[in-house]
Design a protein around this nucleic acid. Structure first.
Length: 267
DNA sequence: ATGGTTGCTTAGCAA
């Protein structure tokens, strides 16, 4: 199974790129963030022609998340359903081919200390609680999306300069560790260890051609899924050219589920 | 120096 996640920064503005990317890379599942359209404006028909069914949690202007798959995503849940503020469309969960998939758009956080910052920290705490309440780390689970947090210094172009900002602050890094502590592995780091692998570059200051980015888009996998991970990466190429999203798609590939190979009797 | 770019909605906000 090839699983991908992409913050498209408006599915309307990115529709042509999205369709081209799907045709070329043909993932089994694609999680989207920042749709920025209501359900009436979501391109269901074009995606259907491209061979994908979509489950969406949409809202006008801001936010919006989706899960695309070859077959209709099942058992769809939208929002946390925890009695808290679910007015921002930032979370959708669905089952695809035996894997529970979550597409998450963690709040950016505005400025440290602001109301948005408090909302971000609270939202990340609620995500951890949602996982505990609604998911099973002993089953195949992929938590995908724009986390708006870089996990480690090697995920940041200039860690000293970014230290303490909303994307690389000790409090949100700790909140991310709490989420990972549910039993989730960072699939990219199962495969690659080097610094300089980024998924987001600011539109300004020629950040992309200078590779001044951060890795804030993640595919986290529970142990039963992570042990089947055979590849992971970031499609930096999609960030090139005219009017890209400011995020590149990230992906992970998993071997089919099945019994472990029996040890050879001659071993 | 709080700049710069893009997108949504139409001057200001969000990222």
């Amino acid at each position: 199974m090839k699983l991908a996640s992409w913050n498209v920064n408006s599915v309307r503005a990115r529709e042509a790129r999205l369709l081209r990317w799907l045709e070329f890379h043909a993932p089994d599942v694609l999680c989207l963030q920042e749709l920025k359209v209501d359900a009436a404006a979501f391109p269901f028909e074009a995606l259907e022609r491209a061979g994908y069914k979509a489950a969406i949690h949409a809202q006008r202007t801001y936010n919006g998340v989706a899960i695309l798959a070859r077959r209709e995503p099942a058992e769809v849940e939208r929002g946390f359903g925890d009695g808290g503020d679910d007015s921002q469309a930032r979370l959708i969960a669905a089952s695809v081919d035996g894997v529970r998939v979550i597409s998450a758009y963690v709040p950016n956080g505005g400025a440290v200390g602001s109301d948005k910052w408090g909302y971000k920290l609270e939202w990340m705490r609620r995500l951890r609680e949602y996982l505990v309440r609604r998911c099973d780390p002993a089953q195949p689970l992929a938590v995908c999306g724009d986390f708006n947090v870089a996990p480690e210094p090697r995920d940041v172009v200039d860690p000293a300069a970014w230290e303490g900002t909303v994307l690389f602050h000790p409090d949100v890094r700790a909140a991310l560790e709490q989420i990972r502590g549910f039993g989730l592995a960072d699939t990219l780091r199962l495969q690659r260890q080097e610094p300089g692998l980024y998924s987001w570059w600011d539109y300004r200051m020629l950040a992309f051609p200078r590779n001044q980015g951060l890795r804030i888009d993640l595919i986290l996998a529970s142990q039963p899924l992570a042990e089947r991970c055979r590849a992971a990466g970031i499609d930096r190429n999609e960030r090139k050219g005219k009017l890209p999203s400011d995020h590149a798609p990230v992906f992970a590939e998993f071997a089919p589920a099945g019994p472990l190979p029996r040890p050879s009797p001659t071993a």
